[in-house]
Design a protein around this nucleic acid. Sequence first.
DNA 1: CGTATAGTTGATTAGTATCAACGCTAGTGG
DNA 2: CCACTAGCGTTGATACTAATCAACTATACG
Lengths: 251, 251
Amino acid sequence: MGSLHMPPLDHDPLKIEPGGELPTQCRNCDIVREVAFCADLSHDEVKRLATVRCHAAFPASFTVFREGDASDHLFSISNGAVKLYKLMPDGRRQIIDFLFSGDIFGLGVDGGYCYTAETITPTHLCRFTHRKLDSLLVEIPRLERRMYAMAIKDLVAAQEQMLLLGRKTAREKVASFLVQLSRRAVQTGLPASPIALPMSRADIADYLGLTIETVSRTFTQLKRDAIIALPASGHAVLDNWDALRELAEGA
Amino acid sequence: MGSLHMPPLDHDPLKIEPGGELPTQCRNCDIVREVAFCADLSHDEVKRLATVRCHAAFPASFTVFREGDASDHLFSISNGAVKLYKLMPDGRRQIIDFLFSGDIFGLGVDGGYCYTAETITPTHLCRFTHRKLDSLLVEIPRLERRMYAMAIKDLVAAQEQMLLLGRKTAREKVASFLVQLSRRAVQTGLPASPIALPMSRADIADYLGLTIETVSRTFTQLKRDAIIALPASGHAVLDNWDALRELAEGA
DNA sequence: CGTATAGTTGATTAGTATCAACGCTAGTGG
DNA sequence: CCACTAGCGTTGATACTAATCAACTATACG
């Protein structure tokens, strides 16, 4: 798992497509601007931002950075999926968040990233150095406002996840997870119901504070109760939205 | 618990001491400036900030605001202790954070606070309206930077708490909690070892995702192992710091 | 001094983890 | 094209941690 066991790439993925003009280099930015941190910026500002940007493609299961690495860069997902996680010395793992198109990560404290970032699927990222970004903040005050808003959004989500981890049952956790993915899909213009589950059972387990066996059993249970269906690996159909939502909220 | 069952106060606590000159009105601000969000500001800037401030005293177990209330204000603790929590419909509770002198809360999303804030001890708070604060952000860019930094700090803490809630054992959770309180005490100039535990066992349990019985048993266990001592109610002595830290980290 | 509340301890249960086996799918090489 | 293999997911049996239920003790309060 991760870059340790990966064959060396024939190129450094971070070096692909150095920053340049926006329209040709970062086509996806237009698509994801609503959710990305470049939302609310004028065309000129986005162009200015593009000058400090670097676009790169990563394969699946690629470690972008590790917890403790110097936090030089801020990343924005053009498309693909990324997981952020923390590890304990004995290997226990907690996934902090699953990220998709338009999400940013690497928001930082000085002194190193506080989680590891690994791609789930093949992923395209925009990379910004914190140093250059900081100097841009003076030019574009709205960018600072935007980064603050993204940090608050992450904070609110983290607090909701604390409630899930500390107080919800396995069934409620899995239901919450599916509701969350569905809402996220709707926000990005995708349908609410057949949702993509690009992550493994192990990832879901480490996100919900469960084991893979419990996650698997809970999915089976929800299928038996006709609340969901899992027609193909990597996809879920939410057949009974109301039941799922009520379960998630613990009503 | 909370304002619902409290006799009505003989005055509105929020109306005490309306904003005015700093030195007389907010003596504690000088003490807590290192950690508070007014750190890094010039004397003039702090004075400017003081004009939009309102100081107020609250009794113990007082609900400052509830989850879902309109998020009009940002609060800063002059002295005292506050807990933030989320509730599920059936009463299950997750405490998001314990806050002390210099901490701020009410960082907000539009559309309401996403947790309830309740005092633990009698507490003095500074209150700022988000509206007035927003207009100040234009005047004092450093203030925005400061609020961003506080949000990031909270985010990092929340992520660490997710690891605790999702993957640590009861013993590790309690050890982590004590280590956390001790480090926080040191940051505010207090000794690392006899630490104050102003919150109830129920609060600790709801913070760590445990029951009061398990918290109590775990304390007893740590006492038997000579790692801590609980001489008086509300105080803990950390007799074996290394053992406690190793437990907390799961090594 | 009596009552109410918080905290501790014990007995039992329940929910999830652990251990183990098996099936499915996808990729590999003959 | 098909058997072989590896990894992922599912299911079953059992163990264990923490929750629940219950009783008791200590502390604070009127």
